[in-house]
Design a protein around this nucleic acid. Structure first.
Lengths: 117, 117
DNA sequence: TTCATATTTCCACAATAATGGAAACATGTG
DNA sequence: CACATGTTTCCATTATTGTGGAAATATGAA
């Protein structure tokens, strides 16, 4: 990931409504959600939501898939992971500091002894 | 981490100079760097750097430690990891999707067979 | 105290971002 | 086609952010 891409992604997430939208989509998985459902869930006016979805889309953090009258927006996990890698890159000069290693959804599930379904 | 904290942290990182400063500090480890060294390394005017360091400090992403005439700024890894956790929280509704799991500095070192020093 | 160096504050200007109602546009249905 | 519903664009207003030179402040050394 390039610096400009990272800044664009971070700027896209650095806004309350967009962050809520993105986290909602992250939790919804590949299937995603349509703007109407997002607007209802988060209580955001259509015009405002549309503006923010476009920002997220432009930053590459979400994808859109047309399905009849609906458009399903979904999180772009590759971009999300690339961004996280960019932030933690070469942590502590590459030494095994044990701190540039955020517990991830997966590792936390392992700690909890939960398995996939 | 609260939504407002996450937005503040993301906003702090969503700026080219600040992102460069933060990544530099992440790579420098707990020892950190003084503004003078950062300014020289990144070619940023003092006033501008000072402004951005304050932003990062205020967002909790870096810490400052006075040492004589110098002030050592260093990355706050706890905050960094909390932010990453916030973004990936409950990915795919908690199912073992295998995608909310960014390769971290540590895991990548393991894959490369490198050990700590 | 006087000097040298490190860092921050002041300030004003320029640029960008967020908001949401109303209207326009797109798509499937009868 | 006419209609209902989902989504986006238009637009003006308001608020926030980034910039860097110059001056002020802080700290240690001579």
């Amino acid at each position: 990931m390039k610096s400009l891409d990272a800044v664009a992604s971070l700027a896209a997430l650095a806004q309350d409504t967009r962050l809520n939208v993105f986290r909602l989509l992250v939790q919804k998985g590949r299937a995603g959600l349509a703007p109407g459902a997002i607007a209802e869930k988060l209580g955001v006016p259509n015009a405002t939501l549309s503006f923010h979805l476009k920002e997220l889309l432009h930053a590459g953090l979400v994808g859109a898939r047309q399905d009849g009258r609906f458009i399903h927006y979904s999180a772009n996990y590759e971009q999300m992971n690339a961004l996280i890698r960019y932030l933690t890159d070469n942590c502590c000069g590459g030494r095994d500091c044990g701190i540039g290693d955020a517990p991830t959804a997966k590792s936390r599930r392992k700690q909890n002894g939960r398995q996939s379904l």
